[in-house]
Design a protein around this nucleic acid. Structure first.
Lengths: 141, 141
DNA sequence: ATAAACCTTATAGCTAGATCTTAGGTCAAG
DNA sequence: CTTGACCTAAGATCTAGCTATAAGGTTTAT
């Protein structure tokens, strides 16, 4: 069991952020002490880490709340709704992955060009590096 | 040459956002008309599209400003500094890519589990799907 | 030549997400 | 048995990134 300050420190965030997440229905501590202190379990910590990672890749807190609320249940009629939500998020993630892959290529090019690569003079800004990516696309059928 | 409203419409953003980007040193129109109207070139449009894409994958405007300011120049003494900056951003992009790949796997699992996969009952929330990812890591040497 | 649709600057207001302030109550160590 | 680190709730404040308003000048179509 973690008290608020312990969990906050363990995850390198502010105590107030935890209270904020609680108020906004993202993470409610599993229990309270007799004197009203918040008590977080390991599972709570996992949820927090999920929230922080999701935030780190650009999900809003509202989206994180949606992701956390997903409960696949084959028996449930809401199954189709859940699948729809998941597939929307999946498309979003895949779009981000593709975009990031382009950034990665461009940044690699810049890094190489900087100190001694063959293409030094040609790609000297990120915009040019991005454009040159498109030039070099292999036409795979 | 685009006037502010034309460029804004072409890129599906608000006129005020363009003025905001100018005030915050992200995109300054290449010229002004005699009457003071902002005039944007195709190159300006490319920069804007870069800004919007970078924002879309989770860079802050301050980071975008940094990325845009990169100018690799082998002759320049600042080369090492630029390489450092680029490599920091590259590491950041690669961290995001890895994180997104995990989300992608988990979401795929959930999508499959939902309507008829073999693993239906086992992975019914995104947290469980994420945990089961770790279980299934292939130990490639 | 005048209305409608655009543009200008400057400044105020909005939402998300987080942090700080106030006025206290709790708890472990000396 | 008190000091200092911790906790409580409620509400104010802060930053980023827009978005809107006010008061006026410009362009284009009729």
């Amino acid at each position: 069991m973690y008290r608020i300050g312990e969990l906050a420190k363990a995850c390198d965030i502010n105590n107030d952020t935890l209270r904020f997440y609680e108020k906004n229905a993202l993470l409610t501590p599993s229990s309270r002490s007799e004197s009203g202190y918040r008590l977080y379990t390991e599972k709570d910590k996992n949820i927090l880490q999920f929230i922080l990672r999701a935030k780190g890749v650009g999900f809003t807190l509202a989206e994180v709340r949606e992701l956390l609320s997903i409960e696949v249940n084959k028996a449930d009629n809401a199954c189709a709704d859940v699948k729809t939500l998941v597939d929307i998020k999946l498309a979003d993630v895949e779009r981000k992955l593709a975009e990031l892959a382009r950034f990665q290529m461009s940044l690699k090019r810049l890094s190489d060009a900087c100190c001694g690569g063959k293409e030094s003079a040609e790609h000297c800004t990120i915009l040019e590096a991005l454009e040159s990516n498109t030039d070099n696309v292999r036409h795979e059928t």
